[in-house]
């Protein structure tokens, strides 16, 4: 009998397990326009729970627009309109009756540049809970500590929680923003180039964090860093000129992509 190629990477069993689960995010026939400009040209995509999915593609390909659809961040953009359906946990998030605040509790977001509020470390993390009207001090304390621990920042700041968040380094600020997102306990975390402004050590910490968070959360990340996409994601989607060119397991995208355009992009031949 001929030997089979054994799947030795731990990631594979995680992916195969998640594939059996019901979809976390289902995108059906999404088209997006900014005035007359068609930014997304009809995309279908399914994201499974407890996976990390990376969106890659050259600037202007629509990946950030697409990501921001998942927590309705594009609603405020002038000239924005869309067609199609996005289901999160089986519910259409573009239904008229949807409560957008509730949606954003479920779908948190971390941005490219760390954006802590000019408040203390503690207040930053507790912010989401405060605006939800939660008053229980013990509950908030517990959530702040838990979120800072999940974001791997607790040990560095536990004795200085009253210090301004702006005194933290860039990498720490970004982990604080992740803690702020985690404090409201979303089930999906969207990350728009979360490490593009960070040094390699801080980047490595965030990547390690993403890997650990996958156990409880579904993570979708936009990145321009090909190595980052290949290191941390289970699935990769390649976008080009508003179209989803290829979506597959990351190990396939980075070893033997089906589409020539994907290969040309990841090998640096265009983009």
């Amino acid at each position: 009998m001929e030997p089979q190629i054994m799947e030795t990477m731990v990631m594979d069993s995680v992916i195969d397990h998640s594939l059996k689960k019901t979809p976390k995010i289902e995108v059906k026939g999404i088209k997006v326009w900014y005035d007359d400009f068609m930014a997304i040209k009809g995309i279908d995509l399914t994201i499974k729970p407890n996976t990390v999915t990376a969106f890659i593609g050259p600037s202007g390909c629509g990946k950030s627009t697409f990501l921001r659809l998942f927590n309705r961040m594009n609603d405020y953009v002038e000239g924005f309109r869309m067609e199609g359906k996005i289901n999160i946990n089986g519910n259409n998030i573009y239904k008229k009756k949807i409560n957008v605040e509730e949606l954003r509790k479920e779908v948190g977001m971390v941005f490219q540049k760390p954006n802590p509020f000019p408040k203390s470390i503690y207040e930053n993390v507790a912010y989401g809970l405060n605006i939800q009207g939660i008053k229980d001090k013990n509950f908030i304390n517990h959530r702040v500590e838990k979120a800072l621990k999940q974001a791997d920042l607790w040990e560095e700041v536990k004795d200085n929680l009253k210090k301004s968040a702006l005194t933290l380094s860039g990498g720490q600020q970004q982990r604080l923003c992740i803690a702020r997102t985690l404090a409201v306990e979303p089930s999906i975390i969207l990350m728009d180039e979360p490490t593009s402004a960070l040094d390699p050590i801080s980047t490595a910490k965030i990547e390690e964090l993403i890997f650990g968070l996958k156990e409880k959360y579904t993570i979708v990340i936009v990145t321009h860093n090909m190595q980052q996409a290949s290191r941390i994601s289970d699935f990769t989607a390649f976008f080009y000129l508003g179209e989803l060119i290829e979506f597959n397991k990351t190990k396939i995208i980075f070893t033997n992509p089906a589409e020539k355009q994907t290969e040309n992009y990841i090998t640096g031949r265009f983009g």
Partner: peptide, 9 residues
């Protein structure tokens, strides 16, 4: 150059 896909092969 951190090659991938056809370059890595």
């Amino acid at each position: 150059y951190n090659p991938v896909a056809v370059d890595l092969r």
